[in-house]
Every structure is written in C-alpha cells, then in structure tokens.
Nucleic acid binder design. Structure first.
Length: 289
DNA sequence: TTTAATGT
C-alpha cells in the first residue's frame, strides 16, 4: 500500500498553529506592556496625558517615561512639548548636588549638553530639579538633567521669573493644597509670526512657556501661567495668569482629555485665583537676584 | 538648610 500523501492543507496546519501561537504571545506581551505603561502614565498624570486637538505633521510626538515625570517629545521640533509630574508635601526637603546634564539617547536627534553653548540661551528645566528631587528622590533628580527635559530659555526668565514660579509652587502652593498635578511646556511661534523656526542647533526656540497647576479631586481647581522669553524677571507672577483654554489655543494641545466635558468647561475656561494665596507671593524676590 | 546657570 503506498504511503498516504499528506495534503497541502494538512502540511499547512502545523505552520498555522505555530503562527497563531506567536500572534497570541505577541498580543499577550503587548497587552501586558500596554497595561503596565498605562499604570505608569496614570501615576504621573491626571485625567490622561496631553493629546492633540487635531492631528498634523507637527503634532507627531511620543511619550518618554522617566523616574518621577513624563515627557511628550517631538522629533519635528526637536523639543519637549510637555512634561507631566506630581508634587506632594514632604518633610525633609534636603536634596543632593546638581547632577551633570546628559544626552537622552531616546531622542535620536543629537541634543547634547553643549548644544546651547554660546547661544545666549540657558538650558532651562521643564520638570524642575529641586521640586522633583525633593518629592521623588535622587534617581528622578538625575532624570531631570536629561537634555530631553531642556528648553532654550533667556537667562532673565530661567533664573528669575520662572525660578520664582518654581519656588512658589513647591514652597507655598504644595504645603497649602497638599498635592499638585503639574504640566509645563513651550509655546512656539505660529508660522506667520516673526521669529518662526528660530533654532539653537536643531532645537526650536520657543517664544513663551506655560505651566498648569491642578489640585486633583472631586472639585478640581486649576491655576495656569504663560510667560514670554522677554521678561526682566521681577514682574509680579499674577500678571501672567491665563486660562487653560488659552494655553490650548496657543499650543494645539488638549489637556486632561479624560475629564468630562462639563467639568472641563469649568476648569479650563475660567481664571479662578481664589484660594491660592497668589497675591501674597507674587512679588517675592528670586533666590539669585 | 540655596531650589538657576554660565564661563573661567
């Protein structure tokens, strides 16, 4: 009796079974990755990480995970578009020495610690050294010195006005409200404004910077600022208060995308400075004056 | 008790 010839279909079956198993493993693996990634992101943001109002080539960006904060990185701008982190009241706030600036190899474009040399711009932290170190520890502090966390800032902004805001946030607001969600980032010129596409090396230079503070909870409260590059540094902080809607109009981002529309209208459309004690701290001198 | 950073 001649051996039974195996049909093409039956020969295919083991192969398909193997392929199915591989697909299953990939699905489970990426599912686990996704669940873990979402858990980390949820711990470093509130009501979802910033999203886009409309998708354009300029709005391509990816989320970089760090110890203590997240970065929305744009390979088009060669710049962070936002950072997201949480601050909580801590007792002993002594922190370690300033670590050195480091290249972030995830950015692909070579942005190195000397990329701003001789440009007249400071390497300004978006996620701040001091507050992140005080709340999240030494490893997180080191991560704030990644070049993917830097934006070109004029010295009078970085060392004076912006520094005063960072100091007020961690020293005054956090003890007052208990915990804060913070989102900060750059504002770029529109294509038609003067100074559009001004770069330091590969890095696009912003015209201004925003910082959004939210007290999470059933009745969340927000305080938001936009500060331009050109400041003297001793302006009162309350001069720069804006609504979150204003920052969304300037950046094209959608902040807190998981927040229900009715709550978003209230939180993002209004400027409500009551309860922050802003007037009392708006004119405090900076540390380096 | 020093939280910003450059240039020397």
């Amino acid at each position: 009796m001649p051996p039974r010839r195996r049909s093409a279909v039956s020969r295919l079956r083991p192969l398909m079974r193997r392929a199915a198993i591989a697909v299953l493993f990939a699905a489970v693996g990426s599912g686990l990755w996704y669940a873990e990634e979402r858990e980390v992101r949820d711990g470093l943001s509130w009501m979802g990480v910033p999203d886009w109002q409309r998708l354009t080539p300029l709005s391509l960006h990816r989320v970089l995970r760090n110890d203590g904060y997240l970065v929305g990185w744009s390979d088009v701008r060669v710049s962070p578009l936002w950072v997201s982190y949480r601050l909580a009241a801590v007792g002993d706030a002594r922190i370690g020495e300033r670590p050195g600036f480091r290249r972030d190899w995830r950015t692909l474009w070579p942005v190195t610690p000397d990329s701003y040399l001789g440009s007249g711009y400071d390497r300004g932290h978006l996620a701040p050294n001091y507050a992140i170190a005080a709340v999240h520890g030494r490893g997180a502090q080191r991560d704030t010195f990644l070049m993917s966390n830097m934006v070109p800032q004029r010295p009078s902004l970085n060392r004076r006005l912006w520094q005063r805001l960072e100091e007020v946030v961690i020293d005054r607001f956090v003890p007052r409200v208990g915990a804060l969600q913070v989102i900060a980032g750059p504002v770029f010129a529109s294509r038609f404004q003067q100074g559009a596409l001004h770069r330091v090396g590969l890095v696009e230079v912003p015209v201004a910077f925003y910082k959004i503070l939210v007290v999470p909870g059933a009745r969340p409260r927000a305080l938001a600022f936009v500060m331009p590059q050109a400041v003297s540094g001793d302006e009162p902080l309350d001069r720069f208060v804006v609504s979150i809607d204003r920052i969304e109009a300037l950046t094209g981002l959608d902040f807190f995308p998981h927040l229900p529309a009715a709550a978003a209208d209230v939180l993002e459309g209004r400027v409500e400075t009551d309860g922050w004690g802003l007037e009392a701290v708006a004119r405090l001198p900076g540390r380096f004056d």
